[in-house]
C-alpha cells in the first residue's frame, strides 16, 4: 500500500463529511449525520488490509467504512440525502447504510449488536472461502452483553472475524473511563481472543495491525480484536452543533487535533501528488453533491417497497372497504 492511496482514502472521507455537513446545514440531509472526522485513519487503514471480496459490518458512524471499502461517493451522498438514487434507495440514510456491491453488509443502530451478525456472516463465508469479515464498533459497545456473546461464539467456532473497536473515548457524551470497568482488550482476552491496543491516528500503524489480524483470520487462526485509540473532532451527531454540551475539555480537543491523522498522512505524500489528489477529490465531490441534490426523492407510492424481500404487500393504515 503506498502512502498516496491511504492519503486519498482519508482525504475523501474528510472532505465527503465536510460536504455532507454543509448539506445538513442547507437542509438537504434531514437526518443530520454522525461524523467520523478525526477517525479517518482507522477506516482507511483497516479497509486497506482487506480484499475487495472481504466483508465489513459498520455502525452509525460508518461513512468512512463505506468510502474506504469503495462505495461510490455520489450514490452514497444521495443515500444520506435519502434520495431514490442512493445506494439503499433512500431507505438507510446516514444511519444504516449498506453497500453489498463492495461488501458492506449494513450498519446496525443497536450499539454492539452488529458484532454477532458479523460473526454469523464470517461463520458462513468461512466454510467455503478464505474471506474475512470486519466488525466495526465504538467504545460504547463494549458495555453491551451482546458484544460479549459474539466474542464467545466467534472464539468457540473460530470464525474469520476481526473485531475493530474505534475507541474515541465518548459514547455520545459519556466518557469511556466512567463507563468501562477493566479494559476493552481484557474483554476479548477473557475469551481467548488475541487483542491489541493500537494508535488509531497513524494510518500506517493501523494498516500494519489490521494486516496482522486479517492475515490470521484468513489463515484459519480465528478472531482477533483491535482497539484503536482515536478521537472524533466533531460532536456525536450534527445536532450537537446547536447544543453546546461541553462534555469535552477544550485542551483535550486541541491535543487530539494536533494529532490529525490526515495531516500526518499528508506529510508522507509529495506536495505535487497531494495537490493532484486533492483536486481530483474536489471534482469528484462537486459531482457527488450535484448528483445528491438533483436526484429525485423516493415516490411515496413506493413506501412499501422492500419491506419484505419476498415482495409481500401490507395493509395500509386506513381501511378502504
Amino acid at each position: 500500500m503506498n502512502a498516496a492511496r491511504l492519503y486519498r482514502t482519508m482525504r475523501l472521507i474528510r472532505r465527503f463529511e465536510e460536504r455532507a455537513i454543509e448539506l445538513v446545514r442547507s437542509g438537504d440531509i434531514a437526518s443530520g449525520i454522525h461524523p467520523c472526522i478525526g477517525q479517518e485513519a482507522v477506516a482507511a487503514g483497516v479497509c486497506a488490509a482487506l480484499r475487495p471480496d472481504d466483508i465489513v459490518l459498520s455502525n452509525h458512524r460508518g461513512h468512512g467504512h463505506l468510502l474506504a471499502k469503495g462505495s461510490d461517493p455520489g450514490r452514497f451522498l444521495a443515500e444520506l440525502a435519502a434520495k431514490d438514487t442512493g445506494i439503499d434507495r433512500g431507505r438507510a440514510g446516514s444511519f444504516h447504510p449498506s453497500d453489498f456491491s463492495v461488501g458492506v453488509y449494513g450498519a446496525s443502530g443497536t450499539v454492539g449488536h452488529g458484532a454477532a451478525i458479523a460473526a454469523g456472516v464470517a461463520w458462513a463465508v468461512g466454510q467455503d472461502s478464505d474471506r474475512v469479515v470486519v466488525s466495526f464498533f465504538g467504545d460504547g459497545a463494549v458495555s453491551q452483553g451482546a458484544l460479549l456473546e459474539s466474542f464467545n461464539l466467534a472464539a468457540l467456532w473460530q470464525v474469520p472475524v476481526v473485531f475493530v473497536c474505534e475507541n474515541n473515548y465518548y459514547a455520545t457524551t459519556l466518557p469511556a473511563d466512567t463507563a468501562i470497568a477493566g479494559t476493552v482488550t481484557g474483554r476479548a482476552e477473557a475469551f481467548g481472543i488475541p487483542a491489541y491496543t493500537v494508535d488509531g491516528q497513524d494510518a500506517d500503524v493501523v494498516l500494519e495491525a489490521a494486516a496482522g489480524a486479517v492475515g490470521r483470520a484468513r489463515a484459519g487462526g480465528g478472531p482477533s480484536l483491535l482497539e484503536f485509540s482515536t478521537y472524533r473532532y466533531e460532536g456525536h451527531h450534527t445536532f450537537e452543533r446547536t447544543m453546546r454540551l461541553r462534555y469535552r475539555d477544550e485542551a483535550e480537543v486541541a491535543r487530539w487535533r494536533a494529532r490529525d491523522p490526515l495531516a500526518l498522512q499528508a506529510s508522507r505524500v509529495a506536495p505535487g501528488e497531494r495537490e493532484r489528489i486533492d483536486a481530483e477529490i474536489e471534482t469528484l465531490l462537486d459531482e457527488a453533491v450535484r448528483y445528491a441534490v438533483e436526484s429525485p426523492q423516493p415516490d411515496p407510492l413506493d413506501a412499501f417497497d422492500h419491506l419484505y424481500a419476498g415482495g409481500m404487500r401490507v395493509r395500509a393504515g386506513v381501511s378502504h372497504a
Binding site: G106, A116, G120, W123, E149, N152
Partner: peptide, 17 residues
C-alpha cells in the same frame, strides 16, 4: 450455548451470507 441474543443475530449474518 445459552446465548439467545448472540445466536439470533448470528443467524441473521449467516442468512445475509
Amino acid at each position: 450455548p445459552l446465548s439467545e441474543q448472540g445466536f439470533t443475530n448470528f443467524a441473521t449474518g449467516a442468512a445475509m451470507a
